[in-house]
Nucleic acid binder design. Structure first.
Lengths: 210, 210
DNA sequence: ATTAAACGTGAGTAATTCTCATATTTGCAA
DNA sequence: TTGCAAATATGAGAATTACTCACGTTTAAT
């Protein structure tokens, strides 16, 4: 009998939870190959048959683990998000005063920008954020989470600030940060750098004098 | 003989420039039907066969005027852009001092936001901005143009400001404005309003004290 | 060793964009 | 008016690609 146990362990939502070691490895191989293919020519051009062939498995096997093409993308997206969340949480963890916040945020943006520049797969995936409803939801949740972390740091710096406003403002700052990254990587490198600096300055002013 | 005269009159790039009256009407009808269908269920779900059927023409005829599905979308996108450009240019035309700039920009954002809320087709199309390379290019060009208009207004207000910096900053402001709109319409209406206000405040601070 | 569940397979289905050979319509020149 | 070439119209079907499913194989627990 083929009883399907649909589980949502990651945002990607695997179809069948891999139980045996063989299949767990297989899932990793699928993700690795998908990554390579996306890096080569973008997630749009990535064909499921290519992924299967490259991973040395059949189409059917591919669909045992991922319900659709989007699920592979989402799983990769989620992994990048988790990495980003850790990075942001660590960067803001011991912010206690205004200068600390200014420095930590500036560094954070730089690191994030460097990641965007260095990871073509991340770039590609988050370029499609607006198109795919599921991806957009993942993205919004991510910004909410990171926004909350930023809001907490800002509250530590300025305890008398309005909590709700800090949350909204920080959420917006995170979303605009992503927008800036996407913009920066789609123009010439030099202009991109300037744009990121402009964003940083604008946001820092908002946070410092807000 | 079927000599094809490819022309790029609009960003949508019609395949064959409609010469006879009949075909010019046809192009308009196609765009109208596409609009209706996008409004009903999104540009992704819009099928070319649906457009053809609704317009009362054959698939082949559809492809006489639009080289591909994207071209229809792009043509509609371009029309919305032109409307926006007019709106922005008029709004900023007689800005001469700081208070004028503050008021004009605030109103501009409100109008833009209202447009986003009111036009489901515009919303749908510009939601997919990041996915389609051609759309992104149109969008970037649009922001560059509008950014230049804003930069000019800011220079009038503050003649000793650095021109290049005004251009970059205004370009970023336009792009972040769009990002804010997209964000605002994908959350609850009430929160969306707050986010737009936050954006406005942040940007105005940048422009006033920048 | 038996067996049931987990896993693997790939030909085939379905959905949809876009082409092309052919037919029809239009407008102009004779 | 008529003849004709260019413009326009048509829709069957080619091409692409995500995804299914019926059936075969492997694994591991009893």
């Amino acid at each position: 009998m083929n009883k399907i146990a649909a589980v949502e362990s990651e945002a990607g939502a695997v179809r069948r939870e891999p139980i045996q070691k063989r299949s767990r490895e297989r899932v990793e191989r699928i993700l690795g190959c998908a990554s390579t293919l996306i890096e080569k020519s973008g997630s749009d051009a990535m064909r499921m048959s290519d992924v299967a062939e490259m991973a040395g498995i059949s189409i059917g096997s591919l669909y045992q683990y991922f319900p659709d093409k989007g699920a592979i993308i989402r799983t990769l997206a989620d992994r990048y998000n988790v990495a980003g969340q850790v990075c942001i949480a660590e960067g803001l963890a011991d912010v206690q005063d205004r200068e600390g916040l200014r420095r930590a945020f500036g560094e954070l943006i730089d690191v994030y920008y460097a990641m965007f520049l260095a990871e073509p797969v991340m770039r590609d995936i988050w370029s499609g954020t607006q198109a795919d409803k599921a991806l957009r939801d993942i993205d919004l949740a991510d910004s909410r989470l990171n926004g909350a972390v930023l809001a907490a740091a800002r509250e530590r710096v300025d305890p008398k600030a309005d909590r709700a406003e800090l949350e909204t403002s920080s959420f917006l700052i995170m979303q605009l940060g992503e927008a800036t990254m996407r913009l920066a990587i789609s123009v010439e490198r030099k202009e991109g750098d300037v744009l990121v600096e402009q964003y940083k300055r604008m946001v820092l002013r908002e946070m410092m004098e807000g």
